[in-house]
Amino acid sequence: MTDAFTKSEMMIVAAARELAGQRVCFVGVGLPNIAVNLAKRTVAPDLELVYEAGVFGSRPARLPLSIGDPTIVTGATAVTSMFELFAFYLQRGLIDVGFLGAAQIDRFGNINTTVIGDDYERPTTRLPGSGGACEIAINARQVFVIMRQSARSFVERIDFRTSPGNPGGGADAARRRRDQGWNGSGPTVIVTDLGIYHFDERGEMRLDSLHPDATIEHVRQTVGWKMAVAPELRTTPPPTAEELRLIRVELDPGGVYSR
């Protein structure tokens, strides 16, 4: 059981491990939800789960099917209006980590979830839009992104900037954040099916760890710019038997997101 695992399981496990030491986490549905619940059972037992629907200290008893599943309410510490959640928890600066997904991402971690195509009004593909992502990117202390990697998603230029990353690069982004009064320090971790990325002093994504079986060549083929690679590139340790048991038995027994 330990030697065979899916790419999604590796993503979930890698994202969960990155949550070590964190306290308050804004959760999304799907992969982030499983990653956060796995972290709570392994590296971050004190993690408080916050859902944008208006729940603090959630303890979901089943895998939530949507961002507002009734299981996130029953047994929670607090249910709030969405106004309170966004104003008093997020904009107040209480969220340590926000999880985001992305249809397109660039080297600075700027994210598009709005449209594919050059014309906002008449797009080729209409995506869901911001939801809470734009304000999470600005006001969560750190942003984690979890997404599958492809040449269509890791692009030189995104079609629409829904959620800011490190606009203008490292020093410039830090100055803009300060001037504009953000709580956040921008994206810090990107976990994909191929590896783990952090951001260097230029505010650019850097490959720090390659998952087992992934290759640098494959990474380069699926990135639309010249990706920076850490001088001491690591190999992500594979999922442990216990991590896989938690995912398969407790968190996603149907394999909806992890297969």
């Binding site: 906002y120 734009c134 304000e135 600005i138 629409f160 803009r176 009064g181 953000w182």
Partner: peptide, 13 residues
């Protein structure tokens, strides 16, 4: 008033 939308394309859209 809110601290959202900074450095995004939403105000342009």
């Amino acid at each position: 008033p809110l601290r959202s939308y900074f450095e995004t394309d939403l105000p342009r859209a």
